[in-house]
Design a protein around this nucleic acid. Sequence first.
DNA 1: AGGTGATCATTA
DNA 2: TAATGATCACCT
Length: 222
Amino acid sequence: MIKPPTTLNELKERTKQIAGLTIGELAKQRQVGVPSDLKRQKGWQGQFIESCLGADAGNLSEPDFSLIGVELKTLPIDFSGRVLESTYISVVNIKNHQGLTWENCATKHKLSHVLWVPIARIKDQPLENSRIATPFLWQPNDKEARQLKQDWEEVMDLVALGQLGQLNARMGEILQVRPKAANSRVLTDTTDSEGNHSQTLPRGFYMRPQFTQGLVDRFLKR
DNA sequence: AGGTGATCATTA
DNA sequence: TAATGATCACCT
């Protein structure tokens, strides 16, 4: 295991060590095997990069690098720099949302400082040929911070009212809400608009690809 | 059961 | 083909 970085500079130095490498090259350095694709191990790549950089938050709802409050997100792109997927951020607290505010929620904490690690891949090519692009740190500017707050509050207002049926993926400029579960039969407890106990599909906050595309364009300057 | 890491696969 | 809805693996 790699020790968690204690300073931002330490983290930056580590990202320089992996920038430009293919997944295969980095895996060889670390002496780990690479799955042929991500069909059955969708999170492998993200967890591999976490282990290489010393992320230590495990599955806690807090930033990956706990000592410096930085969240790590790998970002799948193609070799022309186009973002290929949305980015999962956090669970939507469908229960235990009382007292939850934008200021004290995990979603805001995670997004307050993010290390984006873009990884370029070619569809149907072996995963080991994917190449780590230049990682970059991002913090929301004022406009982005306002929009994130608004997106989050719009969703959580519906949750607080028990209007789960109103939730859909079209809401939100930056963040959207989509299912987050092992499958569509998974249910979590909730309270409906009339105060009755009910169950619903667990949801997560995801960052729209259009937004992360903007970040890539800004920081990688195509 | 419900978090973490996400991508897959079908729909519109 | 972009976007939505569904799904996979691992961890505590």
